[in-house]
Design a binder for these strands. Structure first.
Lengths: 336, 336
DNA sequence: TTGAAAGCGCTAACAC
DNA sequence: GTGTTAGCGCTTTCAA
């Protein structure tokens, strides 16, 4: 910047003003402004955002923490976040926590050390210490996908209860009574909890007896084997499960695989509804019925909320989006 | 930092040294060091990385630019990059270019403005001005997935020619002679070009006549309709295509959809091999035969190469990874 | 073994 | 209309 200023015999201040579009505000000659702009081009000068950040206290960087960026659900959210914030002049640092609370905590710290201006995160924490800390510090952030109990913070989630309800009701309507549920640990996640609640409510409202042996939880780190084991036990005569509601796309895929290994024909031997709709579900055999989440909208809304928080608006925003059941053929629809 | 220093009656210098693990190097009392560390904890002091970055010229940030982070292929790469660099103390800014050269150029600029220490990118440029500029500036970067002709720069790619060759040969071995190819524009991409070359070579080596009417290119922005149109024309009696080799996972999905719309039964009416294997291909109907790319390894190697570049090692590294054909049932394997 | 001081590149308050 | 100056929070000579 000094170079530009010197070669024009003006001060750095002036250059800075022009570059920040504050030329008019400070009443600087149009001609002078143009000269600055030209010189900047000529010297191919690029402002150093780090220096600017040091001075302004802003980095124009936002953080996004999800459990796994290679999960299509989060990848789509990431994409919509990126699209939206880039229009607003921000960039985004993305990281995966692997459902590990410690790792998540570290990531939050690292991102804050990097002076991100705000954070969008899908938390896996159970004690929420970091969330509380951020709130206490007045640091701008939005929770997505998962909310935390009893804490007044911004969030953008979908109505998991309703999704679980719809999915299970659909199964019941199609004539299934022995309906299993496979969730994923950590089980404290609000999403899993609510989907389970929806499942239970659907059973209750439709007079289907709840059997707790039909609810299984498999560990995130060991999905495939976990699901295989669960399916095996579900198939035993004493349980005689006819249909499963699986709690997310990973479990659905694992379930498809396990069914294949066990020689189960879907939906004849076992019907399945998934939570999370992903593109290829449509072309699976059988096409997978799933509760679709408005992924694009989640990212979009999260950015909206975060932008408000960045502006210092203090009321917390809690947004709940609607899921929708996409009916295909994995629940014996053709039999009805 | 001043707070820590003052409350301990030492200088900022000393605190800085201790925090950067240079205490011993400068021969500072163990006891003093411990006092500093304790105080830092007590005051919950966090170093400001922006300020440090301004001083050291390093941001500990790396950039990753791909065409679309929600494409599973890139999402997996992103994940492996993230995993690897986080162990090395870096974070990564991710952005999508949408195969738009201008956007890519802007992104490179933005990331460099953010003082990223290095860049990993899957370029879509045809003139490579930005690539040349980075090389000229001595800025550390690695190309992934796609290489650029006649330019001596780091890259990590897979052998697309071989992949195309294998895929097409497989089709030929299964008895197909009228084999279509669907690539995706921008067609100058090295990947597309090489896959096409592999396709041509396979035909030649196996004495199948090349018919240029069987090579189609659909625009990235308008895939679904494009593929539908292509499939329609391929089905005309004068072309009588029996099998297609599709150039990536998006085209494969679009092809699945178009086939459904046209009432084509795979592989009876049309066989298909895809480039890019994605998890659910296994469970599609029919399960999709595909050329799998070592996604994890691409990310991993790219980071290795970038780290060397960061250290100032100047020889350029060009890594070519091996693809592998995963045979399922979309090419009439059961008929053979 | 420790500290003073300069300065990274920029912005903003305050002159003139 | 334009320039001077004082930092932002840190690291790194250099001196003691």
């Amino acid at each position: 910047m000094t170079d530009v200023a010197k070669s024009l015999n003006v001060s750095k201040t002036l250059v800075s003003m022009v570059l920040n579009n504050k030329g008019d505000e400070f009443g600087i000659n149009q001609e002078t402004q143009q000269r600055v702009l030209d010189k900047v081009k000529e010297l191919n000068y690029k402002p150093n955002r780090i220096a600017r950040g040091l001075r302004t206290g802003k980095s124009n960087l936002l953080g996004l923490i999800v459990s796994d960026i290679s999960n299509p659900f989060y990848a789509k959210i990431a994409r919509s976040v990126e699209d939206k914030v880039s229009k607003l002049g921000y960039n985004v640092i993305i990281a995966s926590s692997d459902e590990d609370a410690k790792r998540e905590s570290d990531l939050i710290q690292i991102m804050r050390d990097h002076q991100v201006d705000g954070l969008i995160l899908s938390t896996t924490q159970t004690d929420n210490v970091d969330i509380k800390q951020m709130k206490k510090d007045g640091f701008p952030f939005v929770l997505i996908d998962r909310k935390v109990p009893r804490l007044d913070v911004n969030h953008v989630v979908v109505d998991n209860f309703k999704g679980g309800l719809q999915a299970t009701e659909h199964l019941i309507k199609n004539g299934y009574k022995r309906i299993g549920l496979i969730t994923i640990s950590p089980s404290h996640l609000s999403t899993m909890k609510e989907r389970e609640d929806g499942y239970k409510r659907a059973l209750k409202e439709n007079g289907v007896r709840f059997d707790k042996r039909l609810v299984a939880e498999v560990p995130f780190e060991n999905l495939k084997e976990g699901v295989l084991g669960v399916l095996k036990s579900f198939m035993k005569p004493e349980l005689a499960v006819q249909a499963v509601f699986v709690a997310n796309n990973h479990v659905a895929t694992a379930c498809l695989e396990a069914a294949e290994q066990l020689g189960l024909r879907l939906p004849l031997d076992l019907a399945m509804v998934s939570f999370d709709d992903i593109e290829l579900f449509r072309f699976c055999y059988p096409p997978v019925t799933a509760v679709a989440q408005p992924v694009g909208l989640i990212g979009d809304s999260a950015v909206d909320v975060l932008m408000d928080a960045l502006k210092g608006l203090s009321e917390t925003k809690k947004i709940t989006l609607e899921p929708s059941l996409v009916i295909r053929k994995s629940c014996g629809e053709h039999l009805v």
